[in-house]
Design a binder for these strands. Structure first.
Lengths: 209, 209
DNA sequence: AATTTTTTCAAACGTTCGTATGAATCAGGT
DNA sequence: ACCTGATTCATACGAACGTTTGAAAAAATT
């Protein structure tokens, strides 16, 4: 039996990720999904809410996993602050790990998520903000508790740099393969997570100037 | 006297930066520049080469400044390696500083540059690669000399994170103002450069795992 | 002043976009 | 077998897109 809705979501995810939501037309999507053009509006209402559905399908479980990991660490630490590395790993780990799971969109969705971070379109921005608000509201205090001596100004700048490094890694890790002349392998996700967490935690721990 | 070519470049720069090149139409550009639609094709040939011209106008002097700064540091250091902070400052400083110069596009162009870094479009990617190749070929050896003990794999990962943090800071520093609740001020470019260089150099110096 | 070259302009080209419509087809319950 | 609601389909709509054209206007050259 044929699951039109899922076919559309899969095709849209791939094309949005590869070319950006704005540069992808519904006709390309329905061509890949092998469904009728009107099916998109029947099942999703509009292109914009199709994008929203594509994102939500992966982001909802992803964010749940992030929060669960963080809570697990907090339970393990009692009333002590969770170490910085653990907080960062809970934040970036599930996202980067998702890329190794082809059944859940694999690298494709990660790329799309990275793209949406950088997308100028205000509708997309608002949609993403909504999806990430809960994660932010839990992780920022956790990070602050792990870095009690860091001035707030430095702290927020470094959050900003974290987002940039993470988004770029999500959107275009593949680029690094050729750029590094094959020395870096983006398919080795655990190594990638370790590299990113290691880099970020050193950056966060830099002494304020 | 009216300088059509410059009016088009200015308007295109602003709109490309604000909405992304793909989401900006020629009709929006000529509306802001108050010129005729055909003038774009008369002066630039196509939308794509208009974007190329917009980028080149700022990037050529910007990259020259980066290389000059690096060479100055190398001269000052004799045959010793240039310290990491100095290399990073020569790389990100001119770009971030450009944002304080409204006569040269100010924050607007920086935002566009950040966007183009993340742009999926292959034409744009190729154009940017061309513009940045010389800078990359000079700065990568300089960075490697400043970090002689860092394994190459780690080195290239960290270059990747650097690009992400820098691009995000260029594209959307403004977002940090509200996100930080006013604690960070993206208009203070020197502070921004210092924050970024400080963060990056700590990340680069993190011990390999 | 006449001629040539460069620049501007209004109008249109063909294409593609997201969306809408109404009929055809299918599935499940009665 | 019949009906009913859900889904698919071909087709069309108006709008916007990048690009082209050929003539008018302006500037430069002679």
């Amino acid at each position: 039996m044929k699951d039109t809705k899922r076919d559309i979501l899969d095709a849209a995810e791939q094309l949005f990720a590869a070319k950006g939501p704005h540069a992808t037309s519904l006709r390309q999507i329905i061509g890949r999904a092998k469904v009728n053009l009107a099916a998109v509006h029947y099942h999703f209402g509009s292109k914009e809410s199709l994008l929203q559905s594509v994102m939500a399908r992966r982001l909802v479980p992803l964010n749940a996993e992030r929060l669960a990991l963080l809570e697990e660490q907090e339970r393990a630490c009692g009333r002590r602050a969770v170490p910085l590395q653990k907080v960062l790993a809970a934040l970036v780990g599930p996202a980067l790990r998702l890329s190794r799971n082809p059944k859940k969109g694999g690298a494709v969705f990660m790329q799309l998520l990275g793209r949406c971070f950088m997308e100028p379109d205000l509708k997309i921005q608002a949609m993403l903000d909504r999806q990430l608000q809960e994660v932010a509201s839990r992780f920022i205090p956790a990070l602050q508790r792990a870095l009690p001596k860091l001035p707030e100004e430095d702290f927020f700048w470094r959050i900003h740099f974290l987002v940039g490094a993470m988004a770029h890694t999500m959107a275009d890790a593949e680029r690094l393969r050729t750029f590094s002349g094959g020395r870096c392998n983006p398919d080795d996700t655990e190594a990638m997570i370790e590299q990113l967490v290691n880099f970020l935690s050193a950056g966060f721990k830099a002494k304020s100037r």
